[in-house]
Design a protein around this nucleic acid. Structure first.
Lengths: 197, 197
DNA sequence: TTCAAAACACTAACCGTTAGTGTTAGCTTC
DNA sequence: GAAGCTAACACTAACGGTTAGTGTTTTGAA
């Protein structure tokens, strides 16, 4: 039917199942023995796939841990680009960050984040993800015609928002922290608007 | 004289010389052939040292590139802890960030930063350094008895300041960018003070 | 002079990651 | 159905950063 064949049947399901099995196995082994104590070859063997197969589904060992967070980048940019017309950007971002933080702090996520905090490699990877988030969000803000701030102001805003998310994760009351940091960001935003460049 | 012998003679000088020779050789090779195209074994051979010697001076391949920036962490914390008594923290930090940015944008530093921006590994490493900076600066701010902000506010401030430095590096006019971002940070700082926790 | 420690060398390996080369399984078209 | 194309997967072997283990030399101190 379609010129470019889009497989939507068993093949796709099997692929997704393999991916899920790898991710589940990896997370289980990491939690059981520690991230550094488990090698890629261990994960592949336990999931009963080849090492190359594992790397065809995940770009790196760290990516196995951050499977859930991979779409945060899109969600942040969409909060800006797809907000209701006329709505200011910051409240939309605040809502989205609230949602992201709830997602990170809910359910049994705490042990995973503990593992991340315990591993320098995972902390570094998370920082690299923040860089991607900030870059994407910057692009979205720069592309918005309704924002009259200078480029530097918008870049700063993007970073501050990304920081808000990671700051809230570490706070005792994450939801309150989001609001506290966003209060500061809103003030910074207004101050940045005072000198349009 | 001292119970713990502190060598201050030829040995220290030789060690420093070896370290410097490794760093210089590495930077030269990286700039000539590209960071990814030069291996650790190449650097060690060209510097005429063993690979293990290289790693006894530098913790990783990336650390060879960021040799100069290793003390930014201390400089930021000192800007807070050793500021003249009674002086507010933010102006002191602004001055220090100005100095750091001047240091990064002066002389022939541009090609090095180009190389860093071109390498994902180096960008990630720089982000990991930002994490260290932010953590240290947070600790310094939390330890300051003169600051009545909430812990979350202080954490946010630390991140914003660290962001200011990396933002300024990328701006067309870095010095002006420092001032622009700090204007926003000062506003955020005042807004954060309104709700002492 | 003697001794302990630090710096350095060398080998061999570990681990994440990738290239190269098949092989199988599923979709699609006839 | 049968044929053929492609995607998913397997396997081996390697590359590059990093470290452990084991000496050897240099240097400063006693």
């Amino acid at each position: 039917m379609t010129a470019v064949p889009t497989p939507t049947g068993r093949r796709e399901r099997k692929k997704a199942a393999t991916r899920q099995k790898i991710a589940d196995t990896a997370l289980r082994l990491f939690m059981e023995h520690g991230y550094d104590a488990v090698g890629i070859r261990d994960v592949a063997a336990e999931a009963d796939v080849a090492v190359t197969t594992l790397f065809s589904h995940f770009a790196s060992k760290e990516a196995l841990v951050f499977e859930q967070e991979e779409d945060f980048e899109r969600r942040l940019t969409r909060a800006v680009t797809e907000r209701t017309p006329g709505e200011p950007a910051l409240p939309a971002l605040r809502r989205e960050v609230h949602a992201l933080v709830r997602h990170c702090t809910g359910a049994g996520a705490a042990p995973v984040w503990r593992m991340i905090d315990d591993s320098p490699a995972l902390r570094a990877y998370e920082q690299a993800m923040k860089l991607r988030y900030a870059r994407s969000l910057t692009a979205a803000l720069l592309a918005d015609p309704g924002l009259s701030h200078s480029e530097t102001s918008l870049r700063a805003l993007a970073w501050f928002v990304v920081d808000a998310q990671s700051l809230a994760r570490e706070a005792e009351d994450p939801e309150a922290a989001v609001d506290e940091v966003f209060t500061m960001i809103e003030a910074a935003w207004r101050a940045g608007a005072e000198r349009p460049a």
